[in-house]
Each structure stands twice: as C-alpha cells, then as structure tokens.
Nucleic acid binder design. Sequence first.
DNA 1: TTGACAAGCGTACGCTGTACACCGTAGCGT
DNA 2: ACGCTACGGTGTACAGCGTACGCTTGTCAA
Lengths: 223, 223
Amino acid sequence: MKSQMASRRRSRDPLTRERVLDTAVALADQSGIESLSMRKLAMELGFGAMALYKHVANKEDMLDAMVDVIFNEMALPPTEVPWREAMRRRALSAREVLSRHPWAIGLTDSRMKPGPANLHHHDAVLGCLRRAGFSVALAIHAYSTLDSYIYGFALQEQSLPFDNPDEVGDVAETMLEGFPVDTYPYLAETIVAHLNRADWEFGDEFERGLDLILDGLERLLKD
Amino acid sequence: MKSQMASRRRSRDPLTRERVLDTAVALADQSGIESLSMRKLAMELGFGAMALYKHVANKEDMLDAMVDVIFNEMALPPTEVPWREAMRRRALSAREVLSRHPWAIGLTDSRMKPGPANLHHHDAVLGCLRRAGFSVALAIHAYSTLDSYIYGFALQEQSLPFDNPDEVGDVAETMLEGFPVDTYPYLAETIVAHLNRADWEFGDEFERGLDLILDGLERLLKD
DNA sequence: TTGACAAGCGTACGCTGTACACCGTAGCGT
DNA sequence: ACGCTACGGTGTACAGCGTACGCTTGTCAA
C-alpha cells in the first residue's frame, strides 16, 4: 500500500542535492538562468520551495554548484596523446559543453569560488602542459590564453542574434533594412558577403582561432 | 526665489536618459550590477522610482543602453597607424574599459541587441582590417579571434579570487592550506611558484597572449 | 518506549520590476 | 488671453522573488 502511494508523484523519491542540481541545470538549459527561481525548481521536483534549503545553503551556493556540475561534463585533456592534441580536444569539449549550457558563462560574475571539478580540471590541464615540457610560467601563459579564447568565444557565440545557421540569411537581410548602409559600410559589406554563403557557420571559426593559438604556443615551447 | 530652491537638492535639474544611464553605470561600478535596483537608482538621482520609466522602457532596455555607454568608452582603432598597432591599441583600451566595468561582460547574456556605439565600433574594426588588406573572411576570423580573447580574458580576470597583486601571496597561502597538495599537485606547484614572485601580475599575461594572436594573424595575412 | 534528529511544509517579511491612475506645468493653436 | 494637449514626475498596488522561522512527520538509536 505504501509502495503504491510512492509512485503517485513522479518525484516522490527523496530529494537529494544531486537531484536538485541536475534539475536546476536542466531548467536553466531550457528556460534560461534568469527565469530559474527556487519556487519553480521546487515545483518541478514536486516539493515545497523550502525543501530545497535542506540540500543547498542558498541560491548563490546552488549556482556555484551548478557551475561545478557543468565543469564535470567537460572532458579532461587525454593523457595518451601529445599536448597539442590533448589541448585541442579539451578545448573542443569545453566549447561544446558551454554552448549546451550558455548560462554558465555569465555566471562566473563575482563567482570566484571554484568547486572541486573546476580545481581538478585546472590541475589536469596544467599537468598536461608541464609534462609536455612547459615551464610553470609558460604553462600559465598557455592556459590563460587558451581559456580566455574558449570562454570568450562561447560568450560571443551566445550573444549572436541567431540561433542556428539557417537564420543567418534572414537576420542579415533585416539588419540591412534596419540601418543605413553608408553609416556602417564595412559592417554592411560583411553582412552582404554572408548572404551569399548560406553554408557559413560561426562555429567553424572556433577551430581556426584555436589552431592559431596552438601554433603560437608550439613556437613558444620550441624556444 | 525660484533659483534658491533649485539648488536645494543636488539632482533637481530635470532627469534625462543620459543622466539615468551614467548614474546607473556609476552605481553598478561601485556596488555591482546585481545590487542595482530601479528604486535605489532613482533615489540616488533624487526622484521617485517610476520617474525612470519616462526615460527608459524598462530595466532590460536600460541594461542594453548601459552596455552601449561603456562601448562608447572604448577607443576605436586609430586610422593613422598600421593595422597591427591599431588592433593592439584597441584591444588594450577594450580590456581597460572592461576591467573598470566588470559587470558589462556578463551582461551580454541573451543581450543580443547591439546599440549604435557597438555597431560603430564593429564597423571601425572591420574597416581597419579591410583597409589593411584582409579579405572579408579573414577580417571576420581576425575579429572573432581577437574579441573572443579580449572578452574571455576580462571574464577570467574578473573571477580571480584576488583584487590586487598584493593579495596574491595571501590567497596562495590560504589555498594551499585548504586543499590536499597531492590531490592537485600541478595546481599546488603553480601556486608555490607564485608565492616567490611577488611582482607577478595577471594583467601582464594579457599583452603576451594578444601578441601571440597578432603574430598568428600577421602570418595569415602574408599568405 | 522514548527521544533525537532529519526531511519537508506553510507562513510571513522585505525586496524586486512595473502597470496604472493621477497631477502640475509648459507650450501651442486659436 | 484662453483652453488643450503632451510630458515629466508621483504614489499606490500587485505579483513574484529569496529565505528566516517554526511546525509536523517519519525514522532510527538507545
């Protein structure tokens, strides 16, 4: 009789921190971080709002933990390949994860408290570089440059005014109508150029820039 | 008699959109964007909360406009110097502005509506590159790579756990106490290395990475 | 059996953004 | 000179937010 009751509500298994965080991430993915409220999250889980606070100190703490959850999704640099390929794979994975969870990027705002997954990731990346012969200073430099690029690209990608490649043409057209071509001649030129290349994907730029940076780092390492 | 009254309150001159935006930026700079509320902003200006809405459609609109205000602060690439130097100066200016207004970085979240200053800036940068001989595709590539780096660096800088170079030593020490050295050996190594270099500034990394990217772009341009 | 403890609930408080009705004044057409 | 309109600023009100606090209930140890 008790077990019959248990299956009435889809979420009547007990609440856990993990379940809270995973659901919060899912909700943020589908509706945006700004619309994620404790009440809605609790309702989604089938509990009262205050139940969450038994598993999470407060919303700040929850957001920090959510960031660590998505850090956990990013692939560590594989150890069995040369540093350049390892860094490349990690970067691609990081970008992919960040574009699945775009809200995580802006969340670093004043969020200067790294979680364990974050620390572990940092350690793995630094280790990969050090073992490949990078000095401590050069490893920091490489890391800083690569991560700046990765996060920055994700940030830009997220704020593009289109969501998928098909829309590029439409957006370009409406933009051209909107503003005077002679005020922004180069911008206009660029947009027109993309009207004719329906196959263009902003995402492809990522690997080109990444390789440019990796080339530079390789050169620095050789000296 | 009227003019005597006029000087009673420091803000009794009429409200303008510009005054609203400037004060909002100042308030965000000093107390963080998350504590910027319409009521507090209005009070700072010496008006009722709803008075703001005569000059700003809503908070979203205001935030968009604030971003454009800080875009206006960033130096355009100068036209009288070669492209590489022009890009370099623009990048340094952009970073400086973003580090004075850190809240602006995270604000691009879903803020895919560029203001006029933003568009003008884009146009100037693209123009600088095109005039220097970059093809449209290469100009986009260069722009995307540089801006990703600039924004990403600002993002990272903002989320560092220290606010000025003097604190680096202290933070490093407390971090080392906090976590097991053998769990994060490379991280620990890196921290220790910085304990001994009190003169290190994360900001210096910016120019090194920037030059690395500019080197790469120069090579691409030559082909 | 008792007693402690943990999980979840309900209510309430102070804060937020902003819709709406209202008012005084400046400027304009007549 | 008169009246009208439009505009800038105000006050109130409402729904939604994060969360402090006290309560109930179920579980397990002693």
